[in-house]
Each structure stands twice: as C-alpha cells, then as structure tokens.
Design a protein around this nucleic acid. Structure first.
Lengths: 109, 109
DNA sequence: TAGACATTTGAATAGCTGTTCATGTGTGCA
DNA sequence: TGCACACATGAACAGCTATTCAAATGTCTA
C-alpha cells in the first residue's frame, strides 16, 4: 500500500543521518538534551557547524530544541526517533561483533 | 566502548541508503533476489544506473550478487541487513500513521 | 545600558555525487 | 563462429552540500 512517499521520507531521513558529523550530533543528544556548545565540544566541531546541522535535523523533526535561559537544549524529537536510532546503533554493534574489515568488499561475481 | 568506528560505518550505511534511487534498488531486492533488469524496470530506472548503485551497495556489503546464466540476481547480503531495513521500513510506516505533513517543520524556538 | 555569552544566520567555496551516454565484458543460442 | 542479450564500467557534467568565516540576534549580568 502506497509504498512511495514512505521511501522518499525514509531516504531523506537516511540522507540526514548519512553525514558523520550530523550523526554524531544526533547521537550526542540522544539520551538527554544537550546545549549546542556542549554538543560541539563533545564531537569536536565548531558551534556554528553544529548549529547548521541542528537546523536540518530540526526541519526533519529528528531533534527538538528548547531554550533554557541562554542555552538551547537539543534532544531527540520523540521516543520514536530515539528508539529508531538506538536500534540502528545496536545493529551496527552486532555487525561489528560479526567481524569484517569493511575495507571495500571483493566484487567477484 | 570504541563508539567511534561504529559511527563511521553506520554513517556510511545511512549515506548509501540516503539516495532515493538506491533505497528503491535495495527495497526491490529485499525479499528475494532479483535480476538487474527487473530491478531497473520495477523502479523505473536505467539498467546502467541500477548497476552503478548496486556496485556501491555491494562494496558496503548491503547486497550480494549471484550469477545465474545470463542474469545476475541481487539480494540483501544477509539476514541482518534484511532485518535492519525491514525494521526501518516499519518505523517509517509508524511515523506515517502518526500523520504529519512533513513539509518543513516550524523552526520556532 | 554596556558588554559578554550562546546560538543563529548568510555568503562563499571546495569537494563530492547521481545521472547519462558510450563502450566494454561475459554468456548463451542458432 | 556470430549475434543478441544482460550487465558492468568509464568518463564527463550539473547540481548539491559540508565546512568555514564573519556578522547578527537574542539573553543574562554588572
């Protein structure tokens, strides 16, 4: 049923999470909301860059920002997003355990 | 522990799935292996383009190709990949049910 | 209010990437 | 062997995007 718009939305979500810096930003504030500067420090990026990425993540409803005095705390937009990413991180761990070098697979057909 | 290489690998996976055409290719051969031409037909893309995308997906061990006479059948590389994507598709459906327009969220802070 | 802090925004740019077109490679059939 | 099918590959290009730097906005405190 209507498997089209979902693909588009899903691809857009994947695309946003497909940038290492942006994924780190997302992970940094997954468990509990964090102010921009602390996210920036924790992933070793400039506040400006982090802010740029947060804007995109916000527009896609992946994160939500809440102002507390001077700082803006960003966190996962909802439990659904949090669970989704947590699952994927777990998957990645499983893959890591199964152990492959991940240095470009042999294309032999 | 070592939460760094995982992020990189996960981001790379997300990046690959972040292109609509490539995601469609992936989905087209998720359940059972499909020859290139049929994948191309099913998603309305040129065989050449599909082949290009399959090469990237193959290099990341997301799909696996097996030759049967003239055709090469592509399918999910393993059950892990299949489950991962199936889960994400389910997530996307859930989101769809919860119903939002997804037309650029209001950035009000 | 002046000034420092925290975040956002805009412009500019270098680098990447999806797509197309043309060509190459491999496989089976007459 | 020659031809047609199925797929892979390479080059080339237009369009996008992550990053940086500079400047603006908003917020609290002295």
């Amino acid at each position: 049923m209507r498997g089209e718009p979902n693909i588009t939305i899903l691809a857009e979500t994947f695309r946003l999470l497909g940038d290492p810096t942006r994924l780190k930003v997302m992970c940094a504030c997954l468990e509990k909301p964090m102010p921009v500067a602390e996210i920036a420090r924790s992933i070793d990026a400039s506040p400006s860059l982090v802010s740029h990425h947060l804007r995109l993540l916000r527009a896609a409803r992946l994160v939500r920002g809440e102002r507390r005095n001077r700082q803006v705390f960003y966190g996962a937009d909802d439990d659904h997003v949090r669970r989704m990413l947590t699952d994927m991180l777990a998957h990645a761990d499983e893959v890591d355990v199964s152990g492959d070098d991940h240095g470009e697979a042999a294309p032999r057909i």
